[in-house]
Design a binder for these strands. Structure first.
Length: 314
DNA sequence: GTTGAGCGTT
């Protein structure tokens, strides 16, 4: 499909603007947002049902309806809270969503040979699966014998948790992961921490993805790769609303939390105090993040880097 | 090239 233009307007009866599609017929949310800042999606009125329909949005890419974009006028969606100012309304939807929202489930006891496709095939018998992962040794690629799965339907999740599973000849258990227990403390920052990133996620892709929630002002990915990123929004309420969520980017479940985590970890507290378990002291004049980086360096130097996770060991 | 309770590279 060649590049074409689709018609987009702020409101249904307003003068539309023509926006270019990509070569494959999709439209980037960023292209829309370039003309309609803060846009998070598109909708249109179905000529058949006369109802408003949402345009499918996956990882920042808008996909044409079944019969193509056609000559319809698409209407811009903005993040909730921008139009709906009442706190009651937003907190009501939050509670409603939070109640039956599915979580990643940990799958324990997997056979070493079980692949992600195997997991998907097995769990699809319980309902639509939106994410599967087998945790592997980074170096060897061998399975660690556990993984994660997420369903779209709450009912599927309930059924799966309530029973044992025979997968490739072994009994496996599915549970809510420990990392999921206990709610995150509230936050007043415009910046969120995005954990469990993979190395192939680019800053551009993260921006594309997160702009569906609100205007993104910055994306920071530490180099070398550290499996996390920081995303800053224009609006701190958007950041706060995402805190504690597990979002799926390119099939991977990433975890959103406070950009500046609470001091509840002994290691972190000692680092902050400038003292290490092995007695090495450093000055506390460094900034928090730099200090954390420095601590990694020091730790590697005194023999705590045996696993070589950070690629320093030769 | 091994293994079998656990918890996802701040």
């Amino acid at each position: 499909m060649a590049e074409m233009y689709i018609r987009i307007a702020e409101e249904e009866n307003e003068e539309p603007m023509e926006i270019p599609s990509e070569d494959d017929g999709t439209v980037l949310l960023s292209t829309v947002a370039a003309q309609f800042p803060g846009a998070c999606g598109l909708r249109y009125r179905s000529p058949v049902s006369q109802c408003m329909r949402g345009v499918r949005l996956v990882d920042g890419i808008l996909h044409a309806p079944e019969n193509g974009w056609g000559n319809l006028v698409y209407v811009v969606n903005y993040p909730k809270g921008r139009k709906m100012d009442e706190i009651d309304a937003s907190s009501a939807t939050k509670i409603k969503r939070g109640d039956q929202k599915t979580s990643d489930l940990i799958v324990l006891g997997l056979p070493w040979k079980t692949s992600e496709q195997d997991l998907k095939d097995y769990f699809s018998t319980f309902g639509e699966v939106i994410m599967v992962q087998v945790k592997r040794d980074v170096k060897t690629g061998n399975s660690k014998g556990f993984g994660f799965v997420r369903f779209t339907e709450w009912e599927s999740q309930g059924k799966v948790i309530s029973q044992r599973h025979m997968i490739d000849g072994r009994w496996c258990d599915c549970k809510l992961p420990n990392s999921k227990q206990g709610p995150d403390e509230p936050m007043r920052s415009r910046k969120v921490f995005v954990g469990r990133c993979t190395e192939d996620m680019t800053a551009d892709e993260l921006r594309q993805f997160f702009m569906q929630f609100g205007e993104v002002t910055d994306v920071f990915i530490p180099k070398p790769f550290r499996a996390f990123a920081f995303v800053t929004f224009a609006d701190d309420q958007v950041a706060a609303s995402l805190c504690g969520e597990d979002l799926i980017i390119k099939g991977i479940s990433v975890h959103i939390s406070n950009a500046e985590p609470k001091h509840n970890n002994t290691r972190q507290m000692m680092e902050r105090a400038g003292r290490f378990g092995n007695g090495v002291c450093i000055s506390s004049v460094f900034g928090k993040y730099f200090q954390r980086d420095l601590s990694r360096h020091v730790c590697l130097g005194v023999g705590m880097g045996e696993k070589g996770f950070w690629g320093q060991k030769k």
